[in-house]
Write a protein that binds this DNA or RNA. Sequence first.
RNA 1: GGAGAGAUGGCUGAGUGGUCGAAAGCGCCGCACUGCUAAUGCGGUAUACCGCUAAUGUGGUAUCGCGGGUUCGAAUCCCGCUCUCUCCGCCA
Length: 423
Amino acid sequence: MLDIKFIRENQDKVQKGTDAKNFHISIAELLGLDERVKQTQSSWESLQAKRNQLSKMIGKEKNTEARDALRSQVLNMKAELEQLQHELREGKAELKQMMLRVAQPAAEDVPLGKDDSFNQELRKVGIPRVFDFKPRDHVELGQQLGILDIERGVKLSGSRSYVLKGQGALLEMALLRYGMQTLVEKGFVPLSVPTLVNEQVMEGTGYFPLGADQAYQVEKDGMALVGTAEVSLCGLHMEETLNAEELPKRYMAQSSCYRREAGTYGRDTHGLYRVHQFQKLEMVVIAENDAEGDRLLHAELLDLAETLLQDLGLPYRVVYVCTGDLGLGQFRKHDIETWMPSRQGYGETHSCSSFLDFQSRRLGIRYKDKSGKRHYAYTLNNTYMAIPRLLLAILENFQTADGRVEIPQILRPYMMGAAYIGE
RNA sequence: GGAGAGAUGGCUGAGUGGUCGAAAGCGCCGCACUGCUAAUGCGGUAUACCGCUAAUGUGGUAUCGCGGGUUCGAAUCCCGCUCUCUCCGCCA
């Protein structure tokens, strides 16, 4: 959520910023409502002030007649007071609903564009492998190796479901174990967090109300399953005031992630690329309100993900995501796309985003600086490992002519020392 | 799922209809005093929004878990909800 004062002072900028992200809302309309709410509030407050004053006098007045006179004065105000209060409530609620739909304008240098085709490629790292045999895709490999069972996954949970077994299940664990270890060494605090959270957290992180279609909701309990541990990690300090000295907080969590993938029927239906439930290792940083610090942290997070891919030996490219492909609250975002032979192209595996104070305004995450002044914190998040897409890339990139898969060196200690899947 | 107890400021905790945004203590900040430290004394110390002010400030409104109600007036009375604790039941 943006600061209403910022919207008042930067109407054009906010309107353009929202438009560029393909979120449609009239800022002029919002500000009109804001003005009306402010006026209502001020009338209500002055009437309240008058009432409070009279009430105090009633308390002090000993004379019964004088008391009754005052009392009737207050009673005469009552209808107007209630009317104003009603208007104020409605107005505020409506304003909030509008505020929740205003996008945060992207950083100045974010490329303008309506969809991901306008994303800007920053660099390519690693050279896609040229096969001297006909490569198999991950589904074929996985099934032949007996580590991936899509049919039974579908039997259990419908389309976009899968079962990992044997070395497949081990490989998932190996990645997670490696990731945990690496990030703990880098100073990230590992957390095990709820993946079933209340709606307030979903709204606070920016996934509700827009985007509610993408979440599995447990309506009976007013809860939703998170699509990423970012939600839980950001929500952790909801409605708290932290101290500047404890920032930045570097958190990470492994979690199951749940996505309905509504509106993607027929897209990426094959294999592990787009699934409803998966394991992910996610990082969240809560930092001070400082543009330069934010830039550095963003670079640090992105670098960790890139280093992972380099250490795994996977070719990838980094793209700077354009306005139209940014989420409601994202200020800037870099995606990392990893080479996927079966797609004959790069597929998104990582996403690193800065939100400035967009999330913390919704969540109420503040901190006190040295002088005791309060600010909303900045939040950032980054994918460290989205398991199915990494598995896909590993299987396809490291397959051998005879249908085995070479396990990256760094994972072998977590794979009972095996060098290949399929032996 | 059933029964009971509770939720007050950074913390402990008082407060059952007005003088309460809230006693007291602790903590924290400032000043004073004292070789240093410690102790002591004095003063200050919630948040959000709206207005005024060049600014330190200052006026108003709201907030005692959340939402509603009664009342001229609610931390205090009534109703609903959430959460915490204890006991019972059930259960991975």
